[in-house]
Design a protein around this nucleic acid. Sequence first.
DNA 1: GCCATGAGTTCCGAAACGGAACTAACTTGG
DNA 2: CCAAGTTAGTTCCGTTTCGGAACTCATGGC
Lengths: 153, 153
Amino acid sequence: MRWSDLENEPCPVARGLSVVGDRWTLLVLRDCFRGLRRFDDIHASLKITRHVLADRLKRLESTGVLERQQYSTAPPRFEYRLTEKGRALYPVMVSLIQWAETYQPHDGTPPYRFHDRETNALLDPVLVDRGSQVPIDSRHVRAARAQGADKPL
Amino acid sequence: MRWSDLENEPCPVARGLSVVGDRWTLLVLRDCFRGLRRFDDIHASLKITRHVLADRLKRLESTGVLERQQYSTAPPRFEYRLTEKGRALYPVMVSLIQWAETYQPHDGTPPYRFHDRETNALLDPVLVDRGSQVPIDSRHVRAARAQGADKPL
DNA sequence: GCCATGAGTTCCGAAACGGAACTAACTTGG
DNA sequence: CCAAGTTAGTTCCGTTTCGGAACTCATGGC
């Protein structure tokens, strides 16, 4: 299996990772969720090589996660914004944050908290079944294809 | 920034990715969630080089995501099982699956569905605020440190 | 003894990455 | 008008990691 083959795998985990599964892409998207849009701002934040950053932004644009928009014509300058497809990755990001804060803590830094932008209410993000509100737990869940064989995950 | 520095970053996204952010680790964990436990089974499923697989399993064991258990003494044989810390990554995996099924679809394969193992009820996993049941959406959420500066994400 | 099984390790060429400098297209300050 | 600054990249080169295949080691079965 090569990395470039992942995008055509039937497994959705593989297809997801073909877009965001390399070492830096999710950190670029973290900066986008923080509001950064320009090459140099993201570069200053991440400190990966400009070479790699340029490549990642190009890929994210080509997969439709970011869009490149001109914000100045003379000189021509571009910025990167999350598309709907990109914003839809927020639950992945938040789930990862929750996991890391619990199981991979960092001493000396107060924990992350999520708030409603309008009411300022504290939020406690949790993955549940929409109908029953029961939390999703790997030991109580079985994954299968809609029709056909009962192949797990 | 180097990959090996991520684990000590204050940012929880960086710390999470220091464990699961490389190109193959989440695919190894997908196989673990599917029930695979043995080296050769995971190798047959993933088809990455044995070299890389051995390295990833070692790292996952050292970070406490998997545990290596002996299941045969003569010859000595080991298998890898998810720990609680590993099972806690299930929401990340499920969020990624939901995203990929929606935005990175694969023709000709029926979509994934999640069911309750006991009642067999269809589940619709969604990230919500535990109190209000309101879905978590990047445009309506602000991330900040608990006390101190209001630095986003 | 000979082959099979399971869990790796070793070796080498290819691809990706890190660091630093360089380019291009302007704008601003003197 | 010229020099310096800003922004968004690109190029070059040495190091690290990866892919593919073969090899090791312990043991069990025929």
